[in-house]
Nucleic acid binder design. Structure first.
Lengths: 210, 210
DNA sequence: TTGACAGCATACTGAGTAGTATGTTTGCAT
DNA sequence: ATGCAAACATACTACTCAGTATGCTGTCAA
C-alpha cells in the first residue's frame, strides 16, 4: 500500500491524545456529552483545558473523535473475522462472539456514540466536525453492511427465513448492542459471564432470524 | 378510591401544558435535551419563555415530565391488555402489537426518554427533579415487570426455553423499542407498514425466546 | 548554548442561557 | 362594571463555559 492509497490515515495516535479520549469517553458518559464541560474532562485527567485544546481544536471534534474511535474498535476487531466460505449462521455467531467482549472492553466509548446517535446535536457545527461525523456514518455503514451481507446470504440459501431485511438488520444490530445500555461490571461477576452473554445473544439472534 | 389513596394524581393536564410538552418533546429530540434552550421550545410554540416557566418551575422538571409522559403512554396502552388466562406467547404478541403503534404515534417523547436514559444528566438536579426521575424509574420498572412476568411464565410452562431472565428481558425490551432509533415516517409508506412491523418484531421476539 | 518547537498551564473574554422580577391581558365569578 | 386570579409577555441578571491569547518548561537537534 503506497502513500497514494492511504486515504484513511493510520495515525499511531500519541499516548497523551489517547488518554484524553479515554477520559472524555468516561466523563461524557457520566454527565452527558453536552452537559459535561471541557474543564470536567481536564479535571478528570488531573490537568487543565490547555492540554485538551492543544490536541483538539474544539469540543465537537473531541466528541467526534471519541465516536470515531468507538466505531473503529468494533470494526477492526470483528471485520477480519468474517469468512465467505463459512455458513451465514457460523459467521454471525463468530461476529457476535467477538463483538460483545469488544464493546464491553471499550464500554464508555460506545455509550457516547449511542448518545450522539440519538440526539444528533445539530447546532452550529464547523465544517471539520461535519466531515468527521460523515466519516463516522461511513464507518458505521460499512460495519452494518457486513451484517447485511450475512443476513442476505442466509435468506438466499434458506438458513434464515425470508423477512424485511432492513427491519431484521436494525433489530439484530440493536440486540447485540443492548448490553451497552444495561451492563455494569461487577466484582463478583464470574469470568464466564461475558462469553456466556455472547452465547446467549448469539442464540437469540440466530433464533430470531431462523 | 378516597383522597388518601390518591398518591399518583390523575391530573386532567391542562391543554396548554400538553402543548408545551409536545413542543418540548419535538425540540428536545431535534437538538438534544441539553443543547436545546427554553427559548427554542418557546419559539417553536410561537410564544415566549414566560408561558413555559408559568407551568414548569425549571427546565429539568420540563424534561422529566416529558419522560414521565412517554412512560405513561405505553404503560396505559399496553398494561390493560395482558390477560393471565392467555398463554405467554399470546400475551407477548398482543403487547408488542399494541406497543409498536403507540411508540410510533408518540415518537418524539420516546426519543427524549432514550436520550436521558443513556446520558443521565447528573449535574445539579433539584429535589423535585430527583423525585420525578424516581417516579419515572418506578413507572418504567412496572412496565418491565409485566414483560418479566410473561417471560417467567413462559419459561416455567416450557413454551420459552430456559435462559438468563434478565438478559432475555433487556434484549426483548430493546428489540421492541428499536424502531425509536431508526423509524422515520414516510409519505409513500403503505398503511400496513406499522402492523406489518409489529408482526415481524413479534415473530422475532417469540422466536428469540423459544 | 542556544534556539526552537512540542506540550502543556494560566488568565481572560464573549456569547448564550437558565432563571427572575415585573408588567400586561384575558377569562370569569359576583 | 369590577375585582381578581390565571395565563401569559417583556426586560433584565447572574453565571457557566467554549474558545483564545499568552506564558512557562522540558527536550532535542545543530
Amino acid at each position: 500500500m503506497t502513500a497514494a492509497a492511504a486515504q484513511t490515515d493510520k495515525k499511531p495516535m500519541s499516548k497523551s491524545k489517547a488518554e484524553i479520549l479515554d477520559a472524555a469517553a468516561e466523563v461524557f458518559t457520566k454527565l452527558g456529552a453536552d452537559t459535561a464541560s471541557i474543564d470536567d474532562v481536564a479535571r478528570h485527567l488531573g490537568s487543565t483545558k490547555g492540554r485538551i485544546y492543544h490536541h483538539f481544536p474544539s469540543k465537537g471534534v473531541l466528541l467526534a473523535e471519541v465516536c470515531l474511535r468507538a466505531a473503529d474498535f468494533v470494526h477492526e476487531e470483528v471485520g477480519p473475522a468474517v469468512d465467505p466460505a463459512e455458513t451465514p449462521e457460523a459467521n454471525l455467531r463468530k461476529m457476535i462472539t467477538l463483538h460483545i467482549p469488544e464493546i464491553l472492553r471499550t464500554l464508555p466509548y460506545h455509550k457516547v456514540i449511542i448518545q450522539s446517535y440519538v440526539g444528533m446535536n445539530q447546532k452550529s457545527t464547523t465544517s471539520l466536525e461535519r466531515e468527521l461525523f460523515k466519516q463516522i456514518r461511513t464507518e458505521r455503514r460499512a460495519y452494518e453492511d457486513i451484517f447485511r451481507g450475512i443476513l442476505q446470504a442466509g435468506m438466499q440459501d434458506g438458513s434464515f427465513r425470508d423477512q424485511n431485511l432492513s427491519i431484521a438488520l436494525q433489530s439484530i444490530l440493536l440486540l447485540i448492542n443492548a448490553p451497552v445500555f444495561w451492563y455494569r461490571p461487577r466484582e463478583d461477576e464470574p469470568a464466564s459471564f461475558i462469553p456466556d452473554l455472547a452465547n446467549q445473544l448469539s442464540d437469540m439472534a440466530v433464533a430470531a432470524l431462523r
